[in-house]
Design a protein around this nucleic acid. Structure first.
Length: 274
DNA sequence: AAGAAGTCCTGGGCGC
DNA sequence: TGCGCCCAGGACTTCT
């Protein structure tokens, strides 16, 4: 499930391949992945456009086209962007193909059918409510402990739910939220408003640390995630909480547990996380 | 207004 | 072996 580190890894893996290229051809093998505007408009608008940049906000990947357009892509749970030779066989669930002027193709593959493409005017993200209302990036100056204190103050929501709220912090998903809480010794079940200043400061530091470390290791591959060249991430082996229910806590040796919080699974150590 | 719950979707894993 | 069930999960909508 691509979260910030995985989307950033995909971005970096595609930079050299995409920037400067012109789109020659569009094939909507499954039109529903053209989320906005409608498929016919997307299909008509892309050919001839030159890719001038590739950026990321939270879990959104943004392909800059010319001076005026942004092609926004969200991979959701299982989306993949792959550079391919047109002659190479298409894997199942290949939904969108962009032909490039260097003879390669950019293929969008999505087993869970959740992700998609959005074509908007440069910087105009109103149709993407989540992108429009995104909170600060964890590795940028706007993300501070005092900002978090302000977000958490008197909130009744469990801290785990707020970490997943993209309007609070951009880019955290289930894996890194669990890892950050584990490393900071805070139970995912705590009411956000009950956290003390010291705890929030620690959580803030640990979020930066986990995200930076995960980017360094090119993300976490659990099931489907790979970068633009099909390479897996190496962070899975460093996970201390996510997916380790029943296994011993690395700090105290007692088994980690998995519980449901807000419809999502949360993995934690009931002894070390308070 | 905050917070909870439902929605999309497929393949893998499970029990029987 | 094979069927049916449940689950994973991000962002968005709808509801209370």
């Amino acid at each position: 499930m691509p979260e910030l580190p995985e989307v950033e890894t995909v971005r970096r893996s595609l930079l050299d391949e995409l920037v400067g290229r012109t789109i020659t051809r569009v094939e909507l093998a499954n039109p529903k992945f053209a989320r906005y505007p409608d498929p016919a408009e997307l299909e008509a608008a892309l050919p001839g456009q030159t890719i001038t940049g590739l950026s990321r906000r939270g879990k959104y990947l943004i392909i800059q086209l010319g001076d005026e357009l942004d092609l926004v892509i969200h991979l959701k749970m299982a989306g993949r962007l792959l550079i391919s030779d047109p002659a190479a066989e298409r894997v199942r669930h290949t939904h969108i193909i962009l032909g490039l002027d260097n003879g390669h193709e950019l293929r969008y593959v999505d087993l869970r059918h959740f992700g998609g493409f959005y074509l908007v005017a440069r910087g105009d993200y109103r149709v993407l409510k989540g992108l429009y209302g995104l909170g600060p990036e964890p590795l940028r100056p706007g993300f501070t402990a005092s900002y978090l204190k302000q977000c958490f103050a008197s909130r009744k929501s469990k801290i785990k739910n707020l970490l997943l709220d993209q309007s609070v912090i951009a880019g955290l998903g289930n894996i890194y939220a669990d890892e950050a809480l584990y490393r900071s010794g805070i139970s995912p079940l705590r009411e956000a408003g009950s956290l003390g200043d010291r705890e929030i400061e620690r959580l803030h530091r640990v979020i930066e640390e986990v995200i930076a470390e995960a980017i360094e290791h090119r993300g976490t591959t659990f099931a489907t995630y790979v970068d633009g060249q099909g390479r897996r991430g190496r962070f899975a082996e460093r996970l201390q909480a996510y997916g380790r229910q029943g296994e011993p806590c690395l700090a105290c040796g007692r088994p980690l547990v998995r519980v449901k919080i807000g419809g999502r699974s949360a993995h934690y150590c009931p002894d070390c996380q308070r």
